[in-house]
């Protein structure tokens, strides 16, 4: 693209198309965020479930890893932003979406004395559905979209079962909507960047 050559209409269209292709990928398409949060939540929920099967008094203590996970994640995001040379609209949208998710999830968690602890996890699973279904649509990645959709029947099932079983449903939810799509996204990202 060095010369002031006369361009044909095909040249113009090709250049426009090339630049659309070159910029359409988002940093979030490497799947790291989905894998990270997927494993953290799976560890907490499955850990609590397993501890509930024992005589341990405080099985919910597994969730204490969350503040550390959040801190580590914020550090990761900060590093990634610093290393990024472009701000895409997709990244910006996704950032706003997941911020809204965190605010919504925090609101539900704060309201658990009012709404009842047995309704908290089903509502959180619905939020997973919003986050991952929307992300799948924006990133145009069907496994994330379908994984997101799977959260809705899981959330419905969770409303009709005990808290202990809800932990298993939550584990399944993060497996199908975060971990599996996350690894598929990562594989897709790697194959595209080879």
């Amino acid at each position: 693209m060095e010369n002031e050559n006369v361009m044909s209409e095909k040249d113009s269209l090709r250049i426009i198309q090339d630049m659309i292709d070159a910029t359409k990928h988002s940093l979030l398409q490497d799947g790291v965020i989905y894998i990270y949060w997927g494993w953290i939540i799976l560890f907490c929920s499955l850990g609590e479930y397993l501890l509930m099967l024992t005589t341990f008094k405080y099985p919910y203590l597994t969730w204490l890893v969350m503040p550390f996970a959040v801190f580590r994640y914020m550090h990761y995001v900060k590093q990634r932003r610093a290393g990024s040379r472009v701000k895409s609209y997709i990244d910006e949208y996704m950032s706003v979406l997941w911020r809204a998710f965190i605010i919504s999830a925090s609101t539900i968690l704060c309201l658990f004395p009012v709404i009842g602890y047995e309704r908290v996890l089903p509502l959180i699973i619905i939020l997973y559905g919003i986050g991952t279904y929307t992300s799948g649509g924006v990133l145009r990645f069907p496994p994330l979209t379908y994984g997101g959709l799977a959260n809705y029947p899981l959330a419905i099932a969770a409303f009709f079962t005990s808290f202990q079983n809800q932990l298993i449903i939550l584990s399944i939810a993060v497996l199908v909507s975060y971990i599996i799509p996350g690894y598929l996204l990562k594989a897709n990202f790697k194959s595209r960047n080879v």
Binding site: M7, I15, V86
Partner: peptide, 26 residues
């Protein structure tokens, strides 16, 4: 209607902002 200028504008239409090195690479 010049190859590089059209490429720059097409690229910037798709992102909020981009660094010089990124534009050069793309």
């Amino acid at each position: 209607h010049q190859q590089l200028r059209l490429a720059i504008i097409s690229l910037l239409m798709n992102v909020r902002e981009a660094e010089f090195t990124y534009i050069r690479e793309k």
